[in-house]
Nucleic acid binder design. Structure first.
Lengths: 345, 345
DNA sequence: CTGAAAGCGCTTACAG
DNA sequence: CTGAAAGCGCTTACAG
């Protein structure tokens, strides 16, 4: 309240509280430990004393003894992607609900999260989650040595890798979108991929391509959009300049689809949803904005995050790595032509 | 590499390294402390031993002694706003460059960041930065007691408050936009504000209103858009339904301006930039997308973040709170009518 | 239920 | 330059 300068009372320790409540420091510790054995009224007395001096157990000291920090590390390459920022937002909230804090790692290299691998070791992290970014061997090694469980988000683990993963259903998604587009009568397909290293992008693209081929169409032309707006805009430009211009473009994520729509409309004068169909993957908030009205394969951020938190909890308890796939759903809007009959279900 | 299960070597401590290098544990500590006095070749020997066993100083233990964690807390209400996610991204990178880590706090209450105030106390944070969200008295009190310097980002501190702040130039921004719109011949103004508690929004709105009034126009009609797309869409709807429909709308941030554009265009069939002018504040990446081409007052995320990091560094060193205002620039695109003559400079 | 004591892995005066 | 020792603020067996 008032403007005190340097004569603030020193921050209280368990010892201070013990003295006030006339108990041992151990008792104070127990009073703040969920299942510990303390007599109801000594605990009460202790908590009152703590309240009086504003005591809070020091997490740092607590971590030193317990060996865990109650902090989970999160590595993100491209927070600016709304799908990831929405995830980060929700993840922070959900982790807080179970008493976990989130330490954020980032990188200016958008291709692969080069999480400063050694840092991870130094914080006794309860877990490390990689948001839609690749796990370098170095980081994997460090985490293994430090016994920090790794969780891949929006990306499946390599078969046999000792890491957990929570992923959307890329295969079904790619096929659903392809089926929808085929049913709408398209015949010249293109795929704007994410970065080459992204398994999710690969899965989306190849399942899409597989379906299209099964239907007897030429395989999709592929351009790389690097998971970014700018990258995808360039890719779309390439595609639309071709003599054999595609009439349906699938983008490995929504952000890229928005770029493709913008380019098709503003640079080529195409009516998206009539002259050309463009679809994405994720269902970010912008997908439903009237300027885009994007047909896409929706992933539930809520479910992905919930699952992630659940996995963190169980692997913290020593469980084996868990690998899950969360189903998505096709969301039909207006950026792609709609089939005459509902044969594409 | 190989699949070891539980027989991993225990994680090395300074003691292990000391034994290997045949020095005291203190020596190991010194070898890892920048300015400490160690003979060049003992240091070398120690570092080799450390390398061999993969030793890294434990930050938790280090924090316990030093009293600081090298972690800065960041509270964000609405990460999904691209202005804030861009900031967060950059902040993480810049902090890492000076050896600081970022602990993320969030909230589902978008109005005021109710950072779990007591948590802040428990981590010996080097600083707490509040991204575009209000500082509750409770949090302020906790930070003061724990001697955690507070930095307000994108928001000015209350006069006399013992906190630092890094803010854009809301006053100049509001006036510039008003001048631009007046010069374009507009006469019926509206302002879509952010949440009521936001000082930044207030400043933008009142400086805008002041200029407009000075020019002899009626004061802007105000609707609250809550800093969100949905909120602003509703606000825009209200405005455009009025008998005295405004011909120029200023939105307190770009995100809301995009919503206003969408509503004006898709629900009212207005040609934005001709029938109506809509301007924003921030210059987020989407502002330059062709679908919006938003005229706005640009804030430099890079400069804001740089300044934030600089302030963190100096207040960590015990300096007094610093309050800075970073100038912005008017960015003219196509969402607003352009004046005939360049009289608005 | 409760206290005394050891210890988590470091840093930092203090002597040498 | 280097080591022995104390101590950071807690938790956790171990006796009582």
């Amino acid at each position: 309240m008032a403007k005190k300068s340097a004569e603030l009372p020193a921050i209280a320790t368990a010892g201070d509280v013990a003295r006030m409540a006339k108990v041992s420091q151990s008792a104070v510790s127990r009073a703040f430990t969920p299942g510990a054995s303390v007599a109801p009224d000594t605990r009460k007395r202790i908590l009152e004393a703590a309240e009086a001096v504003g005591y809070q157990p020091d997490m740092i000291a607590r971590s030193l003894m317990s060996g865990r920090s109650n902090i989970v590390g999160v590595g993100v390459g491209n927070i600016v992607n709304p799908f990831l920022s929405a995830t980060l937002d929700l993840l922070t909230i959900k982790l807080a609900e179970v008493g976990l804090r989130l330490l954020l790692f980032s990188t200016d290299d958008s291709s692969i999260t080069q999480v400063p691998a050694r840092e991870v070791l130094q914080y006794r992290l309860d877990a490390m989650v990689l948001l839609a970014s690749a796990l370098s061997d170095e980081l994997a090694g460090h985490c293994a040595r430090a016994r920090v469980p790794v969780i891949l988000y929006n990306r499946q683990a390599q078969a046999g890798a000792p890491v957990s993963s929570v992923s959307g259903d890329n295969i079904t998604g790619g096929r659903s979108l392809a089926a929808f587009l085929c049913a709408s009568g398209h015949s010249r397909f293109a795929f704007i991929s994410g970065i080459a290293a992204s398994l999710a992008s690969q899965q989306r693209g190849s399942s899409f391509g597989a379906y299209v081929s099964e239907q007897g169409h030429a395989p999709p032309i592929v351009e790389c959009g690097f998971h970014t707006y700018e990258g995808a805009a360039a890719a779309a430009r390439q595609l639309l300049l071709r003599a054999d211009r595609p009439d349906a473009i699938f983008c490995a994520n929504d952000m890229m689809a928005l770029a493709a729509i913008d380019v098709a409309r503003s640079e080529f004068g195409l009516a998206v949803g009539r002259d050309i169909s463009i679809v994405g993957f994720d269902d970010i908030a912008m997908a439903r904005w009237p300027s885009f009205s994007l047909t896409t394969y929706a992933q539930s951020t809520a479910r992905l995050v919930e699952e992630t938190v659940a996995i963190i909890q169980s692997v913290r308890g020593g469980a084996e790595p868990i690998q899950t796939i969360i189903p998505g759903t096709l969301v039909v809007r207006n950026s792609a032509r709609t089939p005459k009959v509902a044969s594409w279900t």
